[in-house]
């Protein structure tokens, strides 16, 4: 299931709902992405340019389609009982939750691997953009080569798409 929303989410309640009544689930893996304060070398607190907030913009319609496509890919690669992806948009301050990925399977390996896969592909394919708000102004975050490399480790031959 995919949800794109401005509101926060309750991790415990979501996992409770996903596991309730499904006794085939032997393992649940989750990843929660948070807005973090910048390190000093990034202009963080000691660098005088601490992050005040992050604003996430997205492409309504395409976002849901891409996330659903990524979910379907994960379900095709691993034996999953269920998948939940929640991604927030709007203005978020340090410490706030941005994204939740939960994967449920009979065994831990499928849950762990599919959770990492979903995050890696989401970061390079789902149309979200972050703008950082600091004392010196607002600037758009650049895409990172490390994220592209993380996503590429899951590519299969012939699976390349124009997103990268």
């Amino acid at each position: 299931m995919i949800r794109v929303q401005a509101e926060d989410f309750d991790v415990g309640a979501e996992i409770e709902r996903l596991t309730a009544g499904n006794i085939r689930v032997g393992g649940v893996a989750s990843f929660i992405g948070l807005v973090r304060a910048m390190r000093p070398e990034e202009g963080g607190p000691d660098g005088g340019g601490g992050l005040k907030a992050m604003t996430l913009e997205h492409y309504p319609g395409m976002t849901e389609r891409e996330l659903a496509r990524i979910e379907a890919e994960a379900r095709g690669r691993w034996p999953l009982e269920d998948v939940l992806v929640i991604h927030r948009y709007g203005r978020l301050e340090p410490g706030e939750r941005i994204v939740l990925v939960v994967t449920l399977s009979a065994h831990r390996q499928a849950a762990f691997e599919s959770c990492a896969f979903l995050m890696d592909w989401l970061k390079t394919k789902a149309p979200f953009w972050k703008a950082e708000e600091t004392a010196s102004g607002t600037s758009w975050v650049d895409a990172r080569a490390t994220d592209t490399r993380a996503a590429e480790r899951w590519e299969t031959s012939g699976g390349n798409r124009a997103a990268e």
Binding site: M119, T124, P127, W140, A143, A163
Partner: peptide, 10 residues
């Protein structure tokens, strides 16, 4: 047609 920078979600 949508034009945008490389994505930075997650």
């Amino acid at each position: 047609v949508a034009l945008f920078p490389p994505v930075t979600g997650g």
